[in-house]
Design a protein around this nucleic acid. Structure first.
Lengths: 191, 191
DNA sequence: AGCATCTGAATGAACGTTCACTCATCCACA
DNA sequence: TGTGGATGAGTGAACGTTCATTCAGATGCT
């Protein structure tokens, strides 16, 4: 409860979430047993259960944390004065860059999103969060440019490729990055 | 090995592969234990091991079977005389339609592709198969229209959205289908 | 009879979770 | 300022369950 605890090097709950992501990324959910996670985090098995009631709850916490971090990294540095196209391609590049340098999170997100965890987690996420990505899509000038499709379709055509490419570890030079980002923009914007 | 065995209702290996996909789709790899798979397939636990040396080998066989089925469904009915754009959008629609009506396979493919299984499996797949999708991308008039990007990037922007949307169970009416398919075409083709 | 297939109980390892316990930190009262 | 009880995070061995895998015997073709 002390304010220091949340920021010092003794935040064990954060270490456990981080270890979970690393092990899931590396070995899949198979290889991420609670004892392996605790060992990687440098804590005892029981410590994880001081902070999370179950493995599912830990996975949910790690998922929401990564989703939020990705959303914040993606919208950071967006210039509201830019055109929608430029705002989108910058957002795409930020998301890709963030996940390329946090590949554990990319691989973890992809695995959770593909699993049966995803459905209950998505419900939980939309209830709690005010998603900065959703907000970015809903600004009037952006909304006017986007195809009239369900948000999940816009996400799969527009931003999901950045997540999956980062998870795969695909390297994109500047030219390929520009082509991919503007390609995704063409996919979701009115011709 | 008898020619009949491969097509009659007593092909237990196929029943086991199918049960694995159904359970992974429904409950994730967690919930797809070998005993649960065998029970769903209507065979004894040991029977799976008559046909596959290990669970990994079974997962690989089920994965390759689904990948092949998807590839064949996607290219079926493509008219080689059509323009590249029309060939692509037809292929996209076929893939989406196939996976919407075989959602187990979509969810299974997404989960395997996101997991650490994916890397060794992809290597296995490219060694053995002559992928009809790769062939479709390599016809000269198609290749001339596509952006000069790595095949995996073209796949993630072009076709992967169809797989992920089908796995999610997203419903697309005719208008949305047309927008999504041509959107993906715009993403990967020269402007 | 011979052989491959199929069976399901048995096996030991590994799983998620629990719990009796330790110990540093805190606060009330002197 | 010094003492003692309360607190709760942290621990790791132990629990019952479930896992992937095995194997000795049953079954059914040829």
């Amino acid at each position: 409860m002390s304010p220091a605890a949340a920021t010092t090097d003794t935040d064990r709950a954060a270490a456990v979430r981080s270890a979970l992501r690393a092990l899931v990324a590396e070995r899949g959910f198979h290889g991420a047993s609670m004892s392996a996670v605790a060992e990687r985090a440098g804590v005892a098995t029981g410590t994880a259960y001081v902070h999370y009631a179950s493995k599912d709850e830990l996975v949910l916490a790690a998922y929401l944390e990564s989703k939020r971090a990705l959303g914040e990294a993606a919208v950071a540095g967006i210039d509201a004065g830019d055109t929608p196209e430029r705002r989108f391609t910058e957002l795409w590049r930020s998301a890709f860059a963030y996940l390329r340098s946090h590949r554990d999170e990319a691989r973890f997100l992809v695995q959770v999103d593909g699993s049966p965890y995803a459905d209950p987690f998505h419900r939980e996420a939309t209830e709690i969060e005010d998603d900065p990505l959703l907000a970015a899509a809903e600004t009037p000038d952006m909304a006017a440019m986007l195809l009239p499709l369900q948000p999940e379709v816009l996400y799969e055509l527009g931003l999901a490729p950045a997540v999956h490419l980062a998870a795969r570890g695909t390297k994109l030079d500047e030219g390929a990055l520009a082509m991919a980002a503007t390609g995704c923009w063409r996919a979701i914007s009115r011709p």
